[in-house]
Computed example of a mutant assay.
Amino acid sequence: MGTIDLNSDVGESYGRWTLGDDLAMFRSVSSANVACGFHAGDPSVIRLTCREAVAAGVMIGAHVGYRDLAGFGRRFLDIDPGELADDVVYQIGALQALAAAEGGKVAYVKPHGGLYNAIVAHTAQARAVVEAVKSVDPNLPILGLPGSEVLRLAEAAGLRAVTEAFADRAYNPDGTLVSRTLPGAVLHDHTEVTEHVLRMATDSAVRTIDGSILKIRAESICVHGDSPGAVTMAAAVREALNAAGITTAAFV
């Protein structure tokens, strides 16, 4: 693999509460998953994030999630699929307007947190997300976990399905992410993370929580922006990829 996308979750500050250093992350990543106000972010934060992404030449994506500010969108919500579809359309539309105000555009959609994990297997919610994206713009790719329901349904609907892997998350043997409620779910050691990423990028594989090797194919790799030391970690990942002859570039 000669080129791979690096993405990060950004725009997650809210009012007087600050989370992450988005501007610093933009020095390392090629795509920005911008919170759309439902799990995090407010209009001013979102607009500033888009402005900084445009200035840095970073691709903007809609990081849509459950309407759950209190839970940071990381809890599963048993929401009616029609309501979920409307929420996704609403979030994409809000980001499109704020990005356009700063000379940018929304280039893809990536579900967040609890929604992301749910639509790996939850067919009704996965279909709601796909239908929502297609209704807004059938040219918008959807970023998701390899083998997930949402990517299967996206392809069936004629949308581009972009497979994603995680630099700083541990994997179960079935290819799902280890729950954040369990120890070892989030990786913090930079050496471990860079080895994890290079295995993904060069061997299309990942070492799972039980030590087994799982084959995966990823067009984009996520480095979370809210983890401690995220900026340093993202820089280390990009440097390791470049040293291995792998260029970092947006997938669109």
Rank of each mutant, 00 (worst) to 15 (best):
H190L: 00
F26M: 14
A128H: 08
E102M: 13
L214W: 06
T247Q: 14
Q91M: 11
A124N: 14
E192Q: 11
T123V: 15
K134T: 05
F251A: 07
A170W: 06
N172G: 03
L153K: 02
Q125E: 15
I79K: 14
V10T: 11
N139H: 15
A244H: 11
L159S: 11
R199L: 10
D168F: 09
A154D: 09
S13T: 10
G144E: 03
Q96S: 10
V29A: 10
F26A: 06
G103P: 02
V45C: 11
F166H: 01
E12I: 08
Q125I: 05
T49H: 10
Y14I: 10
D86G: 06
G229N: 08
S227L: 10
I142D: 04
I213Q: 13
R160C: 07
R16F: 09
A167R: 02
P141Y: 10
D226T: 05
G65F: 09
P228T: 01
R16D: 14
T202M: 14
H122W: 00
G57I: 11
A156W: 14
A94K: 14
S8W: 03
L214N: 00
P81H: 12
P146G: 01
G20S: 04
I216V: 14
R160K: 14
E164I: 03
D80V: 06
A35K: 09
G61I: 08
A236P: 02
S227T: 11
P111A: 12
S28E: 10
V231F: 06
D5Q: 06
I142S: 05
V162A: 11
M233V: 04
I4S: 07
L115Y: 07
V58G: 09
H188E: 14
Y171S: 07
T191Q: 08
Q125A: 15
V206D: 03
L241M: 12
P81C: 14
L143N: 05
